[in-house]
Simulated assay, not measured.
Amino acid sequence: MITIIIPVFNVGKYIRECLESLFCQTYSNFELIIVNDGSTDNSLKIIKEYINEYSEKITLLNQENQGVSEARNLANNYIRGDYLIYIDPDDYLHPDYLKKLVLTIEKEKSDVAICGYEIFYDDIKGENYQKKYNVSVDFLDGIATAQMMMNLDLEGYLWNKLFRVSALKAKGIFFEKGRYIQDWYPVFKTLASMSKITFINESLYFYRQRSTSTVYKKSKKKVDDYYYACRQIIKKAELLDIDSKIIAKFRVATFLAIATDIYYINDVDIIDLYQFSFENGYTELIDNVSILKNREISFKQKIKLLLWRGHAFYKIPIVIKHR
């Protein structure tokens, strides 16, 4: 059986589509744990409609609004399945999402199965696109997968990863409270500890982009949380003896992302963006990083970092074009 965990906070506009896609799955051996994180809209009303119809499958937990991390941590205490997946309440699923994940993890006897996804845009401009993982081998071990994440070829999302519960060191994955970037490091650490990880080269999850999502918050806190996650990943990678050139590449890539986001912060008065970066410790990511002989770092990244070091990064609009 699969345990599915969904944290819910004020997603009345989307939760019905999410639940409908779940209860239309071609694989039905699952339990659903929903954590209502203090919703004040009609989310709970819609959830109760589905409880009336699928009472044997749904466990509803209620808490005062504490955030998505605390919601997931609470749900971890109620896991009964052999497999575990966390999904978001504003997304929806391909009908074969669960079936293909569970068949893959069982067939390969792996600890984790990972599928591709499609990004689509709701109330903001953007072009839909699919992300697939064309891994050339049957499976990767934890270190190779961690390395893939540090190359930014694999994201730290939860919702496209099915975990074997017995392979987790604790039941579920622990998430730090109150962070916008709350899944990246826990996923990195968890995958790095696994023995066997398999990939499905199909887009089975539909990831909604919307203006009210925390992904689009332009704030110092988001930058701080991103920086914190980067530092935690780097510390873990060093303990795992991951190639220093790949760690250097990760440092450069993530610092450039931070430098770009700083430009778009709209709740902080920044007089000197360089000084702001230094005072907040972000430049620590690239301290003592040698780029010229590192072939892991792309030519484009090298140019951008040289522009930063020459105090010309923010003067060229194409360099700071938002990702």
Rank of each mutant, 00 (worst) to 15 (best):
residue 108 E to R: 10
residue 64 E to D: 12
residue 113 A to Q: 06
residue 119 I to R: 09
residue 41 D to E: 03
residue 89 P to D: 15
residue 77 N to M: 11
residue 138 D to P: 06
residue 92 Y to G: 05
residue 21 S to Q: 02
residue 133 Y to N: 09
residue 27 Y to D: 11
residue 107 K to H: 13
residue 101 L to N: 10
residue 60 L to D: 02
residue 88 D to N: 13
residue 33 I to Q: 01
residue 126 G to I: 06
residue 96 D to Y: 12
residue 89 P to T: 10
residue 47 I to K: 00
residue 54 Y to Q: 02
residue 124 I to K: 09
residue 120 F to A: 10
residue 17 E to R: 15
residue 64 E to A: 12
residue 118 E to T: 15
residue 44 L to W: 00
residue 46 I to Y: 04
residue 80 R to D: 11
residue 48 K to R: 13
residue 118 E to V: 12
residue 63 Q to D: 01
residue 144 A to H: 10
residue 39 S to T: 08
residue 64 E to K: 14
residue 45 K to S: 13
residue 37 D to V: 03
residue 56 E to A: 12
residue 38 G to Q: 01
residue 40 T to W: 00
residue 26 T to F: 04
residue 134 N to H: 13
residue 97 Y to K: 05
residue 43 S to R: 05
residue 26 T to W: 01
residue 99 K to F: 12
residue 56 E to H: 13
residue 38 G to L: 03
residue 64 E to Y: 06
residue 102 V to E: 10
residue 31 E to F: 01
residue 104 T to P: 00
residue 56 E to F: 09
residue 113 A to T: 03
residue 93 L to V: 07
residue 128 N to F: 00
residue 135 V to T: 12
residue 72 R to I: 14
residue 94 H to A: 11
residue 98 L to Y: 05
residue 102 V to K: 13
residue 60 L to F: 05
residue 140 L to S: 10
residue 68 V to Y: 01
residue 33 I to D: 01
residue 62 N to E: 14
residue 75 A to S: 12
residue 134 N to V: 06
residue 77 N to F: 07
residue 78 Y to A: 09
residue 34 I to E: 03
residue 121 Y to R: 07
residue 80 R to L: 14
residue 131 K to I: 15
residue 132 K to G: 01
residue 110 S to N: 02
residue 118 E to G: 06
residue 75 A to K: 10
residue 87 I to C: 13
residue 49 E to P: 00
residue 27 Y to R: 08
residue 23 F to V: 03
residue 88 D to E: 14
residue 90 D to M: 12
residue 116 G to R: 03
residue 42 N to Y: 05
residue 113 A to I: 03
residue 106 E to G: 08
residue 57 K to A: 03
residue 102 V to R: 10
residue 89 P to G: 15
residue 111 D to P: 03
residue 106 E to R: 15
residue 85 I to Q: 08
residue 49 E to C: 09
residue 114 I to R: 04
residue 145 T to W: 00
residue 43 S to H: 03
residue 19 L to N: 03
residue 69 S to A: 15
residue 100 K to R: 15
residue 40 T to H: 04
